[in-house]
């Protein structure tokens, strides 16, 4: 019995030795060289794998940067810090990078939207957008929270049918801008904590806008006359963010805008915070089905 056990041990050890030599040789021979730079790049990535950079995951982006196919400042989650680190690893100069954050080009909450009809279909913006007459404005926010669903970072809240972005949570991945079927969310370079944006997307003439909305831009062009940063194209005001300077005095423009369609978004100011301090803001607004015209049971 002792002999058998001893034999088994000896034979297995001998085999193990042979295989260790063979595999050790193979490992040394066929070693896959992962360059130090690439490994450093992979470590520098935030690892959210959100796809905001346009690559499948963080590893793919690291590889693309390593091969020189991608610039170092594409990672929206990591922002300036990661871009700086990548630029250091790759030894390239980093241009000025601005955090791109989404802004919602619509300021009409449920009360401001006119000619709103009951919609009882699938409660998503994508399906509501297919149906005519859900609301008077064919450009504005539908309020069914597709952007809310798209946000992986819990940075969007629905307040009275309008998404509100919590910029302190937002990473700028752009998922909400892609999700919006009406393309009213755009990514804007935030040169300051608070940015001035045009909170309307309606290109219709002023008369039509007035019929469907109480706050929409009528394309009067007053802002463009007062400040050449603004332009009115196709019945809608726009801001040239390339020349945008947070130090500019926008006071007269804000005052003269007849529709108050120009609003500041971004980090709330002390005054704004104080104004809503006592209120309890709703978490999520569900689609309102109370306006159903007939009383029949809805099926399907």
């Amino acid at each position: 019995m002792g002999l058998t056990i001893g034999l088994a041990i000896v034979v297995m050890l001998a085999l193990a030795g042979v295989f260790a030599l063979l595999l050790g040789w193979a490992n040394a021979r066929w070693q896959v060289e992962v360059p130090l730079q690439l490994r450093q790049l992979q470590d520098a990535m935030p690892g959210a794998n959100c796809g905001g950079c346009g690559y499948v995951g963080c590893a793919e982006y690291a590889e693309a940067v390593f091969k020189g196919q991608a610039p170092p400042d594409k990672c929206p989650v990591g922002g300036a810090a990661v871009a700086q680190r990548i630029a250091e690893i790759m030894g390239v100069e980093l241009g000025q990078t601005l955090p791109y954050r989404p802004v919602i080009h619509c300021a009409a909450d449920y009360d401001a939207r006119l000619k709103r009809a009951p919609y009882r279909g699938e409660p998503t913006c994508v399906s509501a957008n297919l149906v005519a007459g859900v609301q008077g404005c064919t450009y504005g926010c539908l309020g069914l929270a597709d952007c809310f669903e798209a946000c992986d970072f819990d940075a969007i809240e629905m307040v009275n049918g309008l998404p509100r972005i919590h910029y302190e949570k937002c990473t700028g991945c752009g998922a909400c801008a892609k999700a919006c079927p009406r393309n009213i969310i755009s990514m804007v370079p935030f040169k300051a904590e608070r940015m001035l944006v045009v909170a309307c997307s309606n290109h219709d003439p002023g008369r039509v806008v007035r019929q469907v909305c109480t706050v929409g831009c009528i394309g009067c062009g007053i802002c463009a006359k007062l400040n050449d940063l603004f332009n009115v194209t196709d019945g809608l005001a726009g801001i040239d963010y390339d020349r945008y300077d947070p130090q500019m005095d926008f006071g007269p423009v804000l005052e003269k805008c007849p529709r108050q369609a120009l609003i500041y978004v971004g980090k709330p100011s002390e005054k704004d915070l104080a104004a809503v301090a006592g209120e309890k803001l709703p978490g999520r607004i569900e689609a309102d089905f109370k306006t159903t015209v007939d009383k029949t049971q809805f099926r399907g």
């Binding site: 063979l22 595999l23 193979a26 490992n27 066929w30 070693q31 896959v32």
Partner: peptide, 10 residues
């Protein structure tokens, strides 16, 4: 193990 090393390399 041998195959894995080979495939990974080549």
């Amino acid at each position: 193990q041998l195959v894995e090393m080979y495939v990974r390399r080549f």
